[in-house]
Design a protein around this nucleic acid. Structure first.
Length: 197
DNA sequence: AGTTGCGGGTTAA
DNA sequence: TTAACCCGCAACT
């Protein structure tokens, strides 16, 4: 029940900051990838970890320029909800994943709730002194250091995979509802269009 | 069409 | 100086 009594190496594992000149090198055990880092967590991953390499997160995080090529910084985009606060089966709420790209996000906000067709609303993240949570990542020799600052003050959005699945789902739906594939124009018809008059 | 990383640039505290 | 954010580019999926 008493998890204190760290030795000096353990202390080093916990006291580093992403901005330190030298980060711990004598890491005994790397963390398993955490997809929902929150509340000022710090993690040390193996450089082999694919998810860590890509600085992935299940929060919708966008790259932000901190003018430091050694440290990658990202900030949270929050979550997209139904403005009518509708409920799906079993009272489940709609928590869509904000599109990462600015243009795609603007387009997204004009779309409708997939459940009740009401307008959507983007809830911004304000968990870091009123500003979005920021994540910092640094690849250093054999390790990848990840530090998150702030506590998310909003529900979790769909994961990347869930959002992806939703998109392709819609595609299949609209495709099957549209004109039977490839009955548009024969090559001959195309030539007729382009005949000289 | 959307994600991710990069880096120049702006703005406000 | 620091941190948030805008913008376009390019690679990749």
């Amino acid at each position: 029940m008493e998890p204190e009594d760290f030795d000096s190496e353990d202390k080093e594992m916990l006291s580093w900051d992403i901005n330190d000149m030298k980060l711990p090198q004598n890491v005994k055990k790397t963390d398993w990838f955490q997809e929902w880092p929150d509340s000022y967590e710090k993690h040390i991953y193996s450089s082999e970890d694919r998810n860590a390499q890509r600085h992935l997160s299940s929060w919708a995080m966008r790259n932000t320029n901190n003018h430091n090529s050694r440290i990658l910084k990202k900030s949270c985009l929050g979550v997209v909800v139904c403005s009518r606060d509708c409920s799906a089966e079993e009272g489940r709420k709609i928590y869509l994943r904000p599109a990462i790209c600015d243009k795609a996000r603007q387009k997204q906000q004009r779309k409708r709730c997939p459940n009740c067709d009401g307008p959507l609303k983007l809830i911004p993240c304000r968990g870091h002194g009123g500003f979005p949570i920021t994540n910092f990542g640094k690849h250093d020799r054999r390790f990848i250091f990840l530090q998150s600052k702030g506590e998310h003050d909003h529900p979790k959005p769909e994961t990347k995979l869930e959002a992806e699945a939703r998109r392709t789902m819609k595609k299949v739906h609209t495709a099957s509802a549209s004109v039977p594939l490839k009955l548009k124009e024969s090559p001959e018809a195309k030539i007729k269009h382009t005949l000289p008059r």
